[in-house]
């Protein structure tokens, strides 16, 4: 089970890890990725409804690829200051390989599939990066 959440408020990475691992003695690896707002303040717009649907689909794909893995994905929207945390991915499994891979997969796919748009103060809408498409494409199955 990989839970997903969209929220305006801050998240607590340690609390998310604790919730995933509480009462579990079978997990050998926890990977945590936190994305931060770099350099300038921004506002994140999203598409309520489709955002949850797409994050859920990405999480379901990860759960199918790495059975037994558990995780949590939290993505914020609204006004965010430089240095603030914007996205959190936590994965936990029996071994580090699957936890690292699934965390990277979740980030790569959510960046190209979840309907969020960054608007930077003073600079306008952030353009999509081809490198993000390339990162997502390497997980495509033949």
């Amino acid at each position: 089970m990989i839970a997903t959440r969209v929220q305006a408020g801050a998240f607590d990475a340690a609390a998310e890890v604790a919730a995933l691992t509480a009462g579990r003695s079978d997990l050998g690896a926890v990977v945590t990725f936190t994305g931060l707002v770099r350099d300038v303040a921004m506002t994140l717009e999203h598409y309520p409804g489709m955002t949850e649907r797409q994050l859920g689909a990405v999480a379901a794909e990860a759960a199918a690829r790495w059975p037994g893995l558990v995780g949590s994905v939290v993505h914020r929207f609204g006004a965010l200051a430089p240095g603030e945390a914007i996205v959190l991915v936590v994965t936990a499994g029996r071994h580090r390989g699957e936890a690292f891979a699934a965390a990277e997969f979740l980030m790569d796919w959510l960046k190209t599939r979840a309907p969020f748009w960054k608007h930077e103060a003073g600079a306008g809408w952030v353009g999509a990066k081809a490198s993000d498409d390339d990162a997502a494409a390497r997980w495509e199955r033949p």
């Binding site: 994305g35 999203h46 996205v87 960046k111 190209t112 979840a114 969020f116 748009w117 952030v126």
Partner: peptide, 23 residues
């Protein structure tokens, strides 16, 4: 997500936007 050749008949909701930039 729908490609250019996807059908639109019967759609309840159609959204139009730039390439996404979350994460």
């Amino acid at each position: 997500f729908a490609g250019l050749e996807a059908p639109v008949a019967g759609a309840a909701e159609i959204a139009i936007f730039p390439p996404v930039t979350g994460g």
